[in-house]
Design a protein around this nucleic acid. Structure first.
Lengths: 212, 212
DNA sequence: GCCCCACCTGAGCAAGCGCTTAGGGCGCAG
DNA sequence: CTGCGCCCTAAGCGCTTGCTCAGGTGGGGC
C-alpha cells in the first residue's frame, strides 16, 4: 500500500544517490512525515509503513530515527549552501547576485517545502554533535548572504542601517516560505521567487530617483 | 530546582487572570517547555515538574495536555489580533498605521518569542476543532493587515503588484522573528520592531523621489 | 546439490507515555 | 471537636515508543 509520492524535480534532490532502494524509500517517507507531523510526533512504525516495510527493516539502513533526520538535515543544508554560493559567485552586480540568491533560495523553500520544513524547523531534535555540525553550515550560509549585501553597500547600490539585521531579515523572509507555502495553491515557486527577489531589492536599495 | 522565570512585562501577558496559582504556574511552564522542545517532545511530567507539583496535579486544572496548548494558542492569537486591530484602527495615514502594526507585531514576537513560537509553530498539534478555531483567528489577523495595505494602495502610498502576496510577505517577515530571536542578544525587541517597520515600508512604498 | 550474503520479518523487550484512581492533609463553617 | 470541599500526591494502568534479535527467504558462485 502507499502509492509512490511524486515530487517536482525541477531542482535536484540528492536522494537519487541513496542506495539501496529501501533506504531511499525510507528517507523520502521521513521527509514527508517529519514535515507533516514533526519529528517527535512521527513513529518509526509510521516511517516503515509509508516506505512499505516492517518496523524492524528501518534499522538495517539507519542506526536510529535521529540518524534519518540528520541525513535529511545535512543534505538539505549542504544543498542550500551550494545554491547560495553559486548565486554569490555568479556574474553581475551585487544587486543581480542578491536577486539571484533570493530567487533560488526562496524557490527551493517553496518547491521543496516539505524538506525545507524539516531542514528549518526540526533542528532542535538533532543529537548534540549533529546539531553543532548543522549550526556551522547555517553560519556559512548566513555569511554568504551577508557578503553579497556588504558588496552592494560598498558599491552604493544598497543602503542598510544595520548589515547583520538586514541579512537576518532577508534570510528570514525566504526561510518562512517553507511554513506558509502549500496552504496557498495560487502561486508557483517561480512566482514567489520573483516576488521575493523584487521585495528584497526594494528593501535594501537606496530610495533615490534612479530606480531600475 | 527551577527558579522563577523572569519575563519582560512591557506588553501584558494574560496569565495574570489565570487562577488558581497552580494553573498559572502550569501554563507558564508549558509556554517555556513547548517553545524549547516542542509540544510532542514535552511530557506531562516535565510540565508538572517545572511548575513544582506532581504529574497528577496537572489534571486537576487541565483536562489534557492538548488543552494546555489550546489555552496558550488561543490567548496568543487573540492578543495578537487585538494588537493589530488597534494599530489598524489608529490615527494617521495608512503608512503610519502599517508601520505601527508591523512595529507592534514584530515587537511582540521578539519580546514574547517563547510564547510566539508556541503560537506560530505548534498549531499542528491542536485537536481538530481547536485547530479550526485558531485558523479562523489567523484569517482575521491576515485580513486586518491586508486591509491596511489595501488602503495604502488606494491612497497611492503603496505600490504592490500582488496584494495577497505582499500581505503574506509582511506577516511572514514578522512571524519568523519568533524563530531566530533569542539566539542573538544584540538587538532589543524595540530595535527589531523599528528596523522591521522601516524595511516593510521600503518594501511597499512606491519608489519615487518623494521619499519620507 | 551447496553455502554465503544481503535483505527482510514476527515477536517482543524495557522504558516511557498520557492519564486515572484512591486517598491524605488542610482551612473553614458549624 | 466534626464534616465538607478543595488541592494535592503515590501508585499504577493500559498502551505506545524506539529498538533488538532469532530466524527466514531468495539469488549468485561453486
Amino acid at each position: 500500500m502507499g502509492g509512490e509520492e511524486k515530487t517536482s524535480q525541477v531542482m535536484p534532490v540528492p536522494w537519487q544517490q541513496v542506495t539501496p532502494d529501501a533506504a531511499r524509500r525510507l528517507v523520502i517517507a521521513a521527509v514527508e512525515e517529519f514535515a507533516e507531523r514533526g519529528y517527535h510526533a512521527t513513529t518509526t512504525r509510521d516511517l516503515a509503513g509509508r516506505a512499505g516495510m516492517s518496523p524492524a527493516a528501518l534499522y538495517i539502513h539507519y542506526k536510529t530515527k535521529e540518524e534519518l533526520l540528520y541525513q535529511i538535515s545535512s543534505a538539505g543544508h549542504r544543498l542550500v549552501l551550494r545554491l547560495l554560493e553559486d548565486a554569490a559567485s555568479g556574474e553581475g552586480t551585487p544587486v543581480d547576485r542578491l536577486a539571484a540568491a533570493v530567487r533560488a533560495f526562496t524557490r527551493w523553500h517553496a518547491e521543496h517545502h516539505t524538506m525545507a520544513r524539516v531542514v528549518q524547523y526540526e533542528l532542535g531534535a538533532l543529537a548534540k554533535e549533529h546539531h553543532a555540525e548543522i549550526v556551522d553550515l547555517r553560519c556559512r550560509t548566513d555569511r554568504v548572504v551577508r557578503g553579497i549585501i556588504q558588496e552592494g553597500v560598498d558599491t552604493g547600490d544598497f543602503v542598510v542601517p544595520d548589515l547583520a539585521g538586514a541579512t537576518v531579515a532577508v534570510m528570514s523572509l525566504c526561510i518562512d516560505v517553507a511554513r506558509w507555502f502549500g496552504a496557498e495553491r495560487r502561486r508557483s515557486p517561480e512566482e514567489v521567487g520573483e516576488l521575493y527577489a523584487d521585495l528584497v531589492l526594494r528593501m535594501l536599495r537606496h530610495a533615490g530617483p534612479a530606480h531600475q
